[in-house]
Amino acid sequence: MNQLRRGGFIAFEGGDGAGKTTQLSLLESWFVERGVPYERTREPGGTPIGERIRSLVLEHGQGEVDPRTEALLFAASRAAHVVQRIRPALESGRFVLCDRYVDSSVAYQGEGRQIGTEAVADVNVFATGGLQPDLTVLLDLEPAAARARREGREGTSDRIESAEDAFHERLRAAFLARAEAEPERYLVLAADGAPEGLQKQIRARVEELLSA
């Protein structure tokens, strides 16, 4: 086997119910099989302070959380995440597999909450120091299909998952617009396909990254 690239940042994006966690877990298993050094993490969260912010923003019963506060809390969590987890992993030569990153804030708060994608993107450039993934896997699914998947899961939906369909339509459009603006950095897949088939396409693209 050719020598593998040292380190890389792969983010998984898409609406709730698109299958990000499933695909990330399948890719993680492949990394284990191949002996690729990696670190798996998620947003919001990934650090002690980030996990506390996650509960504040997502759980019901926290009182009203206005969209601007929501966006700033997510950015604060991400700033800690980059400094404490992501950059150290990359600098040590590991790959980072991250469930959500900046695109989620731009889509969910910028477009979904309608406070402006540019404003949210700018805040996150500051929060991350401009760090971008080497590859973003975007799993695209129609909101009605995503809702059906969410309703089939055990447990209750969080504050954001519970939003109306129009909200999820807006964020889907925002994700696709981000990918269209930088096609070389994205792999956009229709998430209604079989998980194994989707994973095959993901691994083919990641193979290119590993060999770069």
Rank of each mutant, 00 (worst) to 15 (best):
R178D: 07
A181F: 13
D16A: 13
G14W: 04
G63D: 15
H168T: 05
L171G: 01
P195N: 04
D122T: 10
A148L: 10
I86Q: 03
N124D: 14
R100H: 11
A89S: 15
L176E: 13
T41H: 12
A174G: 03
S211M: 03
G61K: 07
E118S: 06
E43F: 08
V96A: 07
T22C: 02
E64R: 05
Q84Y: 07
Y101W: 10
A174S: 15
A190K: 11
E13N: 10
A174R: 08
V96W: 13
G152M: 05
E28R: 14
Q114V: 00
E33P: 00
G50Y: 15
G19F: 06
A204H: 03
R40M: 05
E207I: 01
P67I: 02
T156S: 05
V36M: 10
P44H: 11
Q23E: 03
S162H: 07
Q201V: 01
G45R: 14
E142L: 09
S157M: 14
G197D: 14
A191L: 02
F175Y: 15
F126D: 06
D192N: 14
A174Y: 09
A179T: 11
E164K: 08
A191N: 02
L209T: 07
R170H: 11
P44Q: 14
F31R: 08
L138N: 04
A89D: 14
H60K: 14
K200Y: 04
P133Q: 11
D122G: 07
A119L: 13
F126W: 15
K20L: 07
E182Q: 14
V82G: 02
R203K: 13
E164A: 06
L72F: 09
P143V: 01
Y101N: 00
S29G: 13
L97Y: 12
E207Q: 07
L198M: 02
R113P: 00
A107L: 06
L27E: 12
E151H: 03
G50T: 13
E118N: 03
D122C: 05
E182F: 03
E164P: 00
S157V: 02
L187K: 12
L135S: 06
E151M: 01
F175S: 03
V32N: 05
E70F: 02
R34L: 14
R5W: 12
R149K: 08
G130C: 06
Y108P: 00
Q132Y: 02
H81M: 09
V123M: 15
G93P: 04
P88E: 12
L26D: 01
Y101F: 15
P37F: 02
G193F: 06
V120H: 10
K20S: 08
P133Y: 13
Y108S: 01
Y186N: 05
A204E: 15
I53A: 07
